[in-house]
Amino acid sequence: MDELKNKIIDRIKAGEVYMKPRWKFVLEGVLLGVGIVFAGLASTYLLSLVLFTMQSTGLIYAGTFGWQGFWLLFIHLPWLLVFLAVVLLILIEFMVQRFTFAYKRPLLFSILGVVLMVGAGTTLVLWSPTHDLIRDKSVEKKWPVMHHVYERGEGEHNLYFGILRQNDDVWLLDMRDRRDQIKTYILDTEEALVKPRFILESGLRVMVFGEPEDGYIEVKGIGPIPRNNRLPSPPDTIDPH
C-alpha cells in the first residue's frame, strides 16, 4: 500500500511533480471573468445592432402586415448577426457553468440569468443613442464593414415610410431618405390591405408595404407609423407641382 505513496513522494522530491503557483489559478479566474464580460458586451452589441437595423429600416414593423409581413421579417433578418450573438450567449453559459453557483443549480436558472443580463444590456444600448452615433460616424467616415451594416437604404425590404398625399384620385407617398433626398411614389392601393379603423388622409405619416416599379408602389399593406421610431423623418410639405 505504501508503494503508491512512496512513488508519488519520490516524484515530488525529484521535482518531477510540482505545485502550480497560485497566480496561475488567479490568472485563469481573471481570464474567465474577462471572457464572460467581453462575450457579454459583444452579444449585447450584436443583439442591439440587430434590433437597431430592424428599427431604422422599419423591418421591425413588418409583422403588422400579416403573414406576408412576417415572411418579409424572416427573410430579411440579419441572420449572421443573430447567429453570432447566439453563439456568444452559449459561450457565456459554458463559462458561467464553471462557477459553483451555476452548476449546483438547474441549467435553466443560469440560462435565464445570462439572457436577462444580456437582454437588459441590449435594452439599455438600444435606448441610448449609441448606435445612432456609430452609424453617423461609420457612414460619414466609410468605416469598412461597419458602414455597410449600418447604411441601409429606404425600401430595401419593400417597406416605405413617408407622408400620404392625395392628388385627384391618386395617392402619393412623399418620403425622405437618409441622404436627405426627397422622393415621391405613386401608390397603387387597389389590392392594399388597409389596417382596420385606418382611413387614408392627406398629411398622414404612414408605412407602406409593397413592390416598387417605375415610381409606382403596388401596395400590399398600409398603416400608421408608430411613435418613437428610428426612421428618417418625412418631409414636412411637398409642393404638389
Binding site: L4, K7, I8, R11, I12, V17, Y18, M19, K20, P21, R22, F25
Partner: peptide, 18 residues
C-alpha cells in the same frame, strides 16, 4: 485503476494551490 488513482493524486498535488 491503479494508474488513475496515482494520476489523481499527482493532479491534486499539482493543483493544490487552487
Amino acid at each position: 485503476v491503479e494508474d488513475i488513482v496515482q494520476e489523481a493524486f499527482v493532479r491534486a498535488y499539482t493543483n493544490m494551490k487552487s
